[in-house]
């Protein structure tokens, strides 16, 4: 299925860009008319994924992070966060709550939060090549929405 709308952007793995990334995706997701809670879920999941890239994918240097977001006719939002960093040795272990290699100030909750706040989370990683996280959220048309979601224009 082809997306109805799509964005793609790349930025450096500097922590100041965390707020930019989640804000940009929230602005894009707004066309699906999400509830305040759904929008907060999306922002939080994106923030976790981008933070993982900054802290773990590029621990010693600055690299590129690419984000795509697509909306489909069935009101599905699909976001990918891709880095070309060190990769994850054991994806299943990394997805466990409280697992962290990030030190005392990291809670190890990134993937647990993504899984809790999104409908589906996929992780593909290759050591030395990078990681792609796919976040999927199914949004539903709200009853008060009378206008068509996507106009021909």
């Amino acid at each position: 299925m082809k997306p109805v709308n799509y964005v793609k952007f790349t930025f450096l793995s500097r922590s100041i860009n965390e707020s930019f990334a989640r804000g940009a995706i929230a602005a894009f997701a707004a066309q699906l008319d999400p509830t305040v809670e759904q929008l907060a879920d999306i922002k939080t999941a994106v923030s976790e994924a981008v933070t993982n890239c900054i802290v773990h994918a590029y621990p010693a240097d600055v690299g590129q992070i690419q984000i795509t977001a697509a909306v489909y006719e069935n009101e599905r939002l699909v976001i990918t966060i891709t880095d070309k960093g060190v990769g994850i040795a054991d994806v299943e272990a990394a997805r466990q709550p409280m697992f962290t290699t990030g030190g005392a100030e990291r809670a190890g909750l990134g993937f647990a939060v993504m899984e809790s706040f999104m409908d589906n989370v996929k992780v593909r990683s290759k050591l030395g090549k990078g990681t792609r996280v796919t976040l999927i959220k199914q949004l539903h048309m709200r009853e008060h929405t009378s206008r068509p979601l996507f106009c021909a224009a």
């Binding site: 989640r22 939080t44 923030s47 976790e48 005392a104 100030e105 990291r106 809670a107 909750l109 939060v113």
Partner: peptide
């Protein structure tokens, strides 16, 4: 807004 970094912040101050 708070992501899991806030949890780390609280746990760190708790310790």
């Amino acid at each position: 807004f708070m992501d899991s970094s806030g949890v780390g912040l609280i746990l760190g101050r708790y310790k």
